[in-house]
């Protein structure tokens, strides 16, 4: 019982609005424990999807299936019509909440490393003039995320927000088809979080990215993307809590968001939290 199909934008004529990602009857279980069930959705290029839900609702599992670190148990996940590769690959960029950058590399080296992976298949390292060139090429991306001034610093010299900017720059340089954000701003101060929201929206528009973002902050989810998903269980068996998995229970285009739906979703999250 899903509602997501009602909520899709109507214009299907636009070339860029083709379906990019498709989930058909996808389920994920760990043994007896059914985490996600009956996930059906289509996502078009350029959409910005935010995902909320109580902890353990499966929103991170959903993201990890898309990323390729978790294999789905049933159904099909299609990326541009083809089944996704079940391991991480350059067509899907990722920013985690923490540990997304390499501590032993400077800011520039962190961004240039993907160029080095591309050009040097064994060592993964460039030398001399080619290395210099790869490092200089990173400047455009560092500029885009506002890190150009810190280009020679090491991650431990950066604040949490700057580290996340770096992680985003790393992902963008590969031009991923989708950008996955796993609670990327969860550990940041509110003020910095606002700046990061601005940055993400800016980059999303500039590079026409498709973004999936998991967040535990409903406000963030409500106002950041073009589409908000809520993960929740539609049935609950108190004697066998793992029998039914979560699915996408709300699928709201952000344009239609209003106070009433906000309160409704917040209430449903709240009641879950209490019953859990």
């Amino acid at each position: 019982m899903t509602k997501q199909n009602n909520a899709q934008p109507a214009n299907k004529t636009d070339e860029s609005a083709q379906t990019q990602i498709e989930f058909n009857h996808v389920a994920k279980s760990y043994g007896e424990n059914l985490v996600l069930d009956n996930i059906n959705c289509e996502v078009k290029r350029g959409e910005f999807i935010t995902m909320v839900g109580t902890s353990g609702c499966g929103k991170s599992t959903f993201l990890n299936m898309l990323l390729g670190t978790v294999a789905h148990s049933k159904g099909d996940i299609l990326l541009e019509g083809k089944p996704i590769v079940a391991e991480p690959s350059p067509d899907r960029g990722i920013v985690f909440q923490k540990y997304s950058v390499f501590p032993h590399l400077s800011v520039r080296e962190n961004v240039a490393i993907s160029k080095e992976f591309e050009a040097s298949p064994v060592l993964g390292r460039l030398f001399g003039e080619r290395r210099k060139q790869a490092l200089t090429e990173t400047d455009e991306w560092l500029e885009a995320v506002g890190l150009l001034a810190a280009k020679d610093k090491y991650p431990h010299e950066l604040s949490g927000g700057m580290q996340q900017r770096l992680a985003i720059a790393q992902a963008l340089i590969k031009h991923p088809k989708v950008l996955l954000l796993d609670e990327p701003f969860g550990a940041l101060d509110p003020g910095i979080r606002k700046d990061m929201h601005k940055l993400v929206l800016e980059l999303w528009k500039k590079y026409q990215l498709t973004i999936f973002m998991v967040t535990h902050d409903l406000n963030e989810g409500f106002y950041l993307g073009t589409r908000l998903w809520v993960f929740d269980k539609t049935r609950h068996d108190p004697h066998a809590p793992h029998r039914y998995g979560s699915t996408i229970t709300f699928d709201l285009p952000i344009g239609k968001t209003d106070e009433a739906s906000f309160v409704k979703i917040e209430k449903s999250l709240e009641s879950n939290r209490l019953s859990a």
């Binding site: 990323l67 899907r92 298949p121 993964g124």
Partner: peptide, 12 residues
């Protein structure tokens, strides 16, 4: 995971 999304193979 990050390195893999940046295109690294096992040796790299």
């Amino acid at each position: 995971v990050k390195a893999q999304t940046l295109g690294a193979n096992s040796v790299q």
